[in-house]
């Protein structure tokens, strides 16, 4: 029982990380109609900047603003230099240009930091475990869950309750009308893109102490994020939230429980191989299932 609860928390932790990435991706799609393959690169930039700052200063607290700023600034620069020119183009051009950006970012990171992964220490204040009554749970992971949920809440307030959020929602449904009413939609696009990059960088810097910070980390999680966005329905932030949690839970519990279940049915080594195969494919099968029932995703947006 405690094992199940612990894995549920792990799933929740993966889920909020995925949401931070998916939110940016789905917002950018909703407002600008752009598919951005380089979104994972912004996650990587955030992780590297934070890891580098942590190594220089020895303080994780200083690493947080470094990671956030690097990701947001890179994101806005990318929007200004490249993405802005792709709004009116077809999706194929967007895929190609952002694919080019991935090559550029990955290789630049290799030039700057080398191919060896960087390792970040969990900040000492959070390195212990918290007793949750039934079982102890790592404080750092708990902190990620809290930070992710808080960011989700803040994002909802921003989108539903502020003037900027109102413009974002209006821009997503009636781009031309908003423009005709005198709103600078290009500035709005840059801000939204920067916001998405900020969230991706936040996910990246939090992932640093859990995973090794290395080139290619962005693409791995990007493809999982695509699954989240498709299941949730393109352009819908609420859909991204629920489907990120769903994908996080399904992925984590398959990896945790499937080997034991299969081991009861067949030889150990075969069971492990099969379990690792099925659990790696699990979320994609989930996506296929959702699409069979609802081709537009669980919470279809306007697009």
């Amino acid at each position: 029982m405690t094992l199940i609860l612990e894995q549920l928390l792990n799933g929740l932790q993966l889920g909020v990380m995925l949401f931070l990435l998916a939110a940016g991706l789905t917002l950018v799609f909703g407002i600008m109609g752009v598919i951005n393959l380089a979104h994972g690169s912004l996650y990587m930039v955030g992780a590297y900047a934070a890891a580098f700052a942590a190594k220089l200063t020895g303080s994780f607290l200083l690493a947080i603003p470094a990671g956030l700023a690097a990701a947001a600034l890179t994101g806005m620069a990318v929007e200004y230099l490249v993405i802005r020119h792709l709004y009116a183009r077809d999706h194929l051009d967007q895929v190609l240009a952002t694919f080019g950006l991935i090559l550029f970012f990955n290789q630049t990171i290799i030039l700057l930091f080398g191919r060896q992964p960087l390792f970040v220490q969990i900040p000492p204040a959070l390195s212990g475990a918290v007793d949750l009554g039934l079982f102890p749970y790592p404080a750092y992971r708990l902190c990620i869950i809290a930070a992710g949920l808080l960011s989700a809440g803040a994002l909802f307030l921003l989108i539903q309750r502020t003037r900027l959020g109102m413009l974002v929602r209006a821009g997503a449904t009636h781009r031309e009308m908003v423009q005709a009413l005198g709103v600078d939609i290009r500035l709005l696009s840059t801000i939204v893109f920067g916001l998405g990059a900020l969230l991706a960088g936040f996910a990246g810097l939090m992932a640093g102490p859990l995973l090794s910070v290395q080139v290619g980390m962005g693409e791995q999680i990007l493809i999982l994020t695509f699954v989240v966005v498709v299941i949730g329905g393109l352009g819908s932030v609420a859909g991204a939230f629920w489907s990120a949690l769903l994908v996080g839970l399904v992925d984590t519990s398959l990896r945790a429980f499937l080997p034991q279940i299969l081991r009861g049915m067949m030889a150990g080594s075969e069971a492990d191989a099969l379990a690792s195969g099925i659990s790696a494919m699990g979320v994609y099968l989930l996506m296929a299932l959702v699409l069979l029932i609802k081709p537009k995703g669980l919470f279809p947006g306007h697009a």
Binding site: V82, L96, A97, F99, G100, L101, I102, L103, F104, F105, Q107, T108, L111
Partner: peptide, 8 residues
Amino acid sequence: AILGPLLV
């Protein structure tokens, strides 16, 4: 690092 920007 050269091919990427060329592609863009």
